[in-house]
Design a protein around this nucleic acid. Structure first.
Lengths: 238, 238
DNA sequence: ACCTGAACACCGTTCAAGT
DNA sequence: ACCTGAACACCGTTCAAGT
């Protein structure tokens, strides 16, 4: 009977989705079950089906909410890139980095987006905005299309990790080096890479795989490559 | 009591994994449950835990089997690329395309690999082979490392699909065009792209998104970009 | 010591019974 | 007509009881 008795406010799709996002943020995606979600809202699990078609629809709605938040505080501010005066590259980077921030804030969203095959409305709007940036940057519709495919999941701010080395990273560079030496026999080239990294950059923070660096490295390589294609064949994208 | 009574052959990890792969190939990944797998092998579900630590270990073993098959019939044959006499690009394309064939043959593998965070032994061997190709191609360890990250999941032959348009594709180009016109209001740039595509290529097969084309397009753009970086700074990959 | 299957603690969703 | 909760058909895994 208190003021914030959750049973008082009427249920709505938005309230269900926000509760699900909060639940996933706090306890992980696996904690998001119809039963537990209903319990958190002080509602019979079955009542959720009034606002959500099924579990998949719930997950779709959750990512839609997260991706939709990208549009609010997006590229307008600038996200000033070091060496350019805005333009399509800066705008694209801004959009993509905003999406990345949203993804990093909601770690579970990446996993849901990978599992989904159809794009939600907010994702479609995001893609459309990116396409618009490219068109304004002088890309043909055809090359714009290929560009979207090339950028792929990086449009949403994440990339496929090769493998998770965060456990080894957390233990410090000497553990990483030990790890590398141990696998030198089986994976000589990977070991060489790892050892090279831990030698080059003596600072602790830089060793191992720096996700943020690798992400921007990839984006820049892709944008440069696309720009070259645009300039090579301005009339036809193929 | 027949000759091929599955109960006769003793269970082994390999036999369990092969049965799981066959089950996933035939009835989809969701059909792979400990209960159903045990049933298919004529064995108590709990007996599987003698050969497999848990469900995740089972899935790991399954993808390991698939990725491991890539090494058998890999780049040796040549996979001759149009305009070059082999070299690192041809070798890399060959390896990646072999992985792609394996992935296309086992549609569920992509989903499992995306969900996994740690790389299985076969995947590690694959990465190491790719790293070896790059090193032999004159890349520094550092640039080799970044190259692996840039190529990402495409090393294993797949890329993140933006959205699945196979349903619309199957209905033919006129349906695709209708689709595009309907969404022109909300997603003008995406609609323009789709309409441009269906106009350019009148043949039915070519319209919509050609996965194979987009994949090779991306690979070529990435390899060209990496080559340029290699040649720009031969001594230091950064 | 090994194997097995009943049991536990969950799922998403159906559907009939209650209001 | 609407809402609800018991019930269904599954899960992965534990664990104690049987051999």
């Amino acid at each position: 009977m208190t003021d914030d008795d959750p049973g008082r406010r009427p249920l709505s799709r938005d309230r269900v989705l926000r509760a699900a996002v909060a639940l996933a943020d706090e306890h992980g995606l696996d904690a998001v079950s119809m039963r537990r979600l209903g319990q958190g809202l002080g509602v019979d699990p079955m009542s959720l089906y009034k606002h959500v078609a099924n579990k998949d629809d719930l997950l779709d709605g959750m990512v839609d909410l997260v991706v939709g938040s990208v549009e609010a505080g997006d590229t307008a501010v600038g996200d000033a890139v070091e060496g350019d005066g805005g333009g399509w590259k800066g705008a694209l980077r801004g959009r993509v980095m905003a999406a990345r921030r949203a993804m990093l804030a909601h770690g579970w969203a990446k996993r849901v987006l990978e599992a989904r095959e159809g794009a939600s409305p907010a994702v479609m709007r995001h893609y459309d905005a990116v396409a618009g940036i490219l068109r304004a940057g002088g890309f043909t519709p055809d090359l714009t299309h290929h560009a979207l495919h090339v950028l792929g999941s990086r449009l949403l701010g994440f990339s496929q990790e090769l493998f998770d080395d965060s456990a080894a990273l957390a233990e410090g560079p000497e553990v990483l080096e030990l790890h590398a030496r141990r696998m030198a026999g089986q994976f000589p080239h990977l070991a060489e890479m790892m050892l090279g990294i831990s030698h080059d950059e003596a600072t602790v923070v830089g060793s191992g795989c720096d996700d943020q660096f690798e992400f921007t490295f990839a984006i820049d390589l892709l944008l440069d490559g696309l720009e070259r294609l645009r300039d090579a064949a301005p009339a036809d994208g193929h």
